[in-house]
Design a protein around this nucleic acid. Structure first.
Lengths: 150, 150
DNA sequence: GTACATGCAAACGGTTTGCATATCT
DNA sequence: AGATATGCAAACCGTTTGCATGTAC
């Protein structure tokens, strides 16, 4: 919950306000294991405060992003957010079947990045890197249904 | 221009029509070095046939995709298309500065894919793989402008 | 002649903006 | 009190759909 106090201090320092909506949205994003899309945040927020508008969710998340409190990941045509953690940068894998997001530790991309830079003189933007694919769970489900077994 | 005759035969075989719009759109996509987004195709098409509608471009490209004539690449929130070439599968690198698209030979992803499958049991969907980043040209331009040079 | 394709308009889904009202400080 | 945030409505942008007209076959 270190993020909380730090984020709240940042808000104060900028002369911005600590509103219930902002605290709620921050708590929701912080409670997720991985990134959540805007609508997921919105739905969860409505459980606590039914009057909240999705516009507020968008604006608040963009504000937190600007403050470095959360980071944004675009997946398909949806924006996702997670609490920023500069100590453990990572990329994401998203399952095309179940839409689940998984963290991808950066070492998996090191050699890839290195060869791109060295051989193709292309500097990949790993801050916004996401691989889609099929996760082990869904691959198993699929092979089970194909063989008719469980 | 092999793609042409093959595509046209495929259309006929399916009882579909060879319209001027379809031939125009195919020729435009085939003329590009790499993938083009829908609006680029549309603009070029209007030069030859000003009455064409962007809806037709979308529908035609989707049809060609279904026939295996073109392949679709989603970049950001835009769809891009290129002539399908099953003989040389590749992925893409897109420069965030100039938006130029470059082909990425598959060998650059082999080790990456292998470690994902082996160690994380995640099968990446390399058919829809795109890395964004900064190309060498734009990196050079940037460093020049930063040092006051050109 | 008939089925299929086109153009146009309207809908769609995610996101952003304008503005009057409400709220934090 | 005064500046900032919110809710609501409307705009936006890329893409898709409905439908009457047009055209390839």
């Amino acid at each position: 919950m270190l993020e909380y106090t730090k984020a709240l201090e940042t808000l104060r320092a900028m002369g911005l306000r600590l509103t219930p909506q902002r605290m709620l949205i921050l708590s929701i994003v912080a409670s997720g294991n991985s990134h959540m899309d805007v609508d997921q945040v919105f739905q969860r927020a409505k459980e606590s405060y039914p009057y909240i508008d999705i516009t507020t969710v968008y604006r608040t998340l963009q504000l937190f992003k600007k403050l470095g409190v959360v980071s944004e990941v675009a997946i398909g045509n949806r924006l996702h957010f997670e609490v920023a953690n500069p100590e453990s940068p990572h990329q994401h894998m998203v399952c095309l079947v179940c839409s689940e997001a998984y963290d991808l530790p950066p070492q998996y991309l090191e050699e890839f990045r290195h060869s791109l830079v060295q051989e193709l003189a292309f500097e990949p933007d790993l801050k916004n890197f996401t691989v889609t694919g099929v996760c082990s769970q869904c691959a198993r489900d699929k092979s089970n249904s194909e063989t008719g077994g469980f």
